[in-house]
Design a protein around this nucleic acid. Sequence first.
DNA 1: CCAAAAGTGTTGCCGATACACCCATGG
DNA 2: CCATGGGTGTATCGGCAACACTTTTGG
Lengths: 244, 244
Amino acid sequence: MTESNTNRVNTKVLADFKVGVDNVIFSVDTKQNRLLVLLSKRKEEPFQGYWGLPGTLVRQGESLEQAAYRILAEKIRVKNLYLEQLYTFAGPNRDPRESPHSFGVRYLSVSYFALVRFEEAELIPEPSNNITWYMIEKVPQLAFDHHQILQYGYQRLRNKLEYSPIAFEVLPELFTLSDLYQFYETILGNNFSDYSNFRNRLLKLGFLLDMGIKVTRGAGRPASLYRFDPVAFAPLKDKPMVFI
Amino acid sequence: MTESNTNRVNTKVLADFKVGVDNVIFSVDTKQNRLLVLLSKRKEEPFQGYWGLPGTLVRQGESLEQAAYRILAEKIRVKNLYLEQLYTFAGPNRDPRESPHSFGVRYLSVSYFALVRFEEAELIPEPSNNITWYMIEKVPQLAFDHHQILQYGYQRLRNKLEYSPIAFEVLPELFTLSDLYQFYETILGNNFSDYSNFRNRLLKLGFLLDMGIKVTRGAGRPASLYRFDPVAFAPLKDKPMVFI
DNA sequence: CCAAAAGTGTTGCCGATACACCCATGG
DNA sequence: CCATGGGTGTATCGGCAACACTTTTGG
């Protein structure tokens, strides 16, 4: 990292940073067709009482990713998830603690994007650990620039879904094609694709294995259970591909 | 950003960060079919004498993007460029200055990805400002984890090129379709697409305006000069689209 | 037997590939 | 007049959207 020829001026004007990690944690409640994001109510200033993205400050010896997992583990218990770095926000004055006379102490936020399996995710009810799933359309005003971060994460979620198999990280081991379709529908909107075309496209790709097991859910013809086959998918990795 | 309920332990174990910005600056020498990356030779420890990505430490009151532009301005004079944030690297021990007894002082690097117009880019010959364009295949061993950052940037460049009109930020105002084709070819490799299909695809998209001006370069039939029309492109923004 | 959900098939269109071919210039 | 690079045309193939249709269950 860092400078090569900045020896003249800036040693005395360098900024000192606290580095935070903020997580945009999504989950899909397929049963109710809801896209959810995890928010936590702030117990301290600044923005006390506001909802915000679950976050933490990075500790000594801790990597960013470790910090991201640590927050996650503090808020919810979950085994199946997908996590990746999102974006880094560090504009001056993005955190009230910087001003007014803090002499260069800045708060930088590296945001992480996560998708967790809803059915197994268990919110940890630590006393006064005030966390909830919010429907994406009903998110209230958020602390700091968390609204911007959330928007960024939401965008990433929709993009990732189209060219990346993240859905399978988070669906149950065995799922029906309707489950999969609903998952996509919940995130991308109602008419993102025709169901039967969606079916055909995915099946033709060849990484969904029909387990030969049928399940019946209420009325209607029983559906086959499928499994995602990472081995069959591997050669398609990095190939341009659209799940839409 | 930052914590919500971390009041018990971590105040005393929080890491303090210096934040650096490192730029992966690409340029395309269309004449010679070369993809170039800007490297600068380090004049100080650590890694003195090594080549590395041009970088700097962030100053008080300075945003990350400002810092990125500042480095750029220190190294090259250029008007037309594209710049975006790349990724943030902050693992402990990524910078030798952290160890051994620095008590939590960490060096975090936010990398930026830039593409500049080669013809107009003028390296600034400050005394001992040791900077050069390196062909991507001939990059030597780099300081810190800069090789990793470079790889990441290279990947981003190729991806961006396929679904984003960044080429036009960096080509001359008026260009021939061969220029454009060569630009893509230089970055994506020799047989990324048939020339005439490339032509047809792009022209059909409708945002390339034939200026009706012909230019002759050596032998061969004169070529039409085209201009990128941002207005015609605007409605296509965010639509999935492939330039390939 | 009918509604509901799962799954299959059909058709027409569009776009991409892989070429072959024509055009205008310099030497 | 020919090599060189620019530009146009075309035939084939595959994919995909739209939609009709069949199958299997619950009530």
